[in-house]
Design a protein around this nucleic acid. Sequence first.
DNA 1: GCGGTCAGATTAACACCGTTAGCTAACCAA
DNA 2: TTGGTTAGCTAACGGTGTTAATCTGACCGC
Lengths: 198, 198
Amino acid sequence: MIDVTDRKPRSHELTRSGIVLTAKAIARRDGWQAVSIRKIADAIQYSPPIVYEYFDSKDVLLDEIRCEGFRYLSTEYDRVMKLYRDPEKRLFEISLIQWRFATEKPEVYQVMYNLDGAYCTLPISQSADMQAVGDVVRETIFSFIPKAKEAIQKLYFEWWATSHGFIMLALLLRDQQPLAQSEQVYQETMRRFVRGLR
Amino acid sequence: MIDVTDRKPRSHELTRSGIVLTAKAIARRDGWQAVSIRKIADAIQYSPPIVYEYFDSKDVLLDEIRCEGFRYLSTEYDRVMKLYRDPEKRLFEISLIQWRFATEKPEVYQVMYNLDGAYCTLPISQSADMQAVGDVVRETIFSFIPKAKEAIQKLYFEWWATSHGFIMLALLLRDQQPLAQSEQVYQETMRRFVRGLR
DNA sequence: GCGGTCAGATTAACACCGTTAGCTAACCAA
DNA sequence: TTGGTTAGCTAACGGTGTTAATCTGACCGC
């Protein structure tokens, strides 16, 4: 039973962001498998169908959070680009952001790559937000290794795979190997990767 | 309604492996999200509770498939160890097995790492089967880089992260970048990694 | 033949899930 | 007072993992 009396009136935008925040909060606490439309509705003190006024489906809600994650990365990358001029420094700092993001907002990282029970069926490939992230990294690589488009794409693929692989494995083995130790190996590897580009 | 007349009598072992095979078949066709106890029971022509005679829960069933995957890798690694004596060749061939396994049995690879809707809550860390896989790789690395235990563990971590990262990303981007092309980059990278150990 | 036992398998239920159809109650213009 | 619009709800459908209770039928001693 919903008690309407203690439900504060909120704007459309506030309710919408409330849904997103609640979904992430539940995912962070209990994992994505525990996130349900009913629990979200409960938390924002509405009935389940209201959620569908804001998102056509659970899939679309997850996709929103996913894109939000890529957009966040994009702005962080831009910040680095403005802060440093040295391409080598740039790519290394971008690598550090990747680690920081994955460890500080694991629930977002999970839904971005469909990890640990998070599952969004919408294709990630066509996402313009993900493409934008790639553009910044490719541009950075190009700025000190001006090669053909295919070569840049290959280097980007290698950078991404290395970064993502280390992060994923570090999170997977975090109860065997302390995160701080994995982070050290990560930084070492990414520094070596960046240096190897020269 | 279940028609008992056309259900063939099977041994305990045969029914058990039937459950595992059916789960993998559904996962391969429609993804792990589509795998349900009822669908498995339907396929093996039994009622749902029968599945619980063989596996305490869906989680345990997934864990079995996961461990089976690690055991398969283990035997394949052993095969390579017997086939080649050169440590460099050994580690490279093991890397190739990793790729082949992930692309030929994606549904098993997914459940091993909780990817794409596959979700097993049982901790993977304590799995002896996973440990066995690691032992073979660590041993291989040690055989031509005899270093301290921590250094070997670090190299193993790097090898695993690199291999897994490339494979994951290749599968993720397979509709943008053909798998054959990604495989080439993978082989190149793993060869470089192995060479870099000298 | 008859009653009892036991294992194998089933049905039916519980509490969830995503999603949707349809209702209610409040408001506002005419 | 109507009529219409709108926000929000309840209730339902078909699905999920899981379990308690029940049924079925074969076997065995008498």
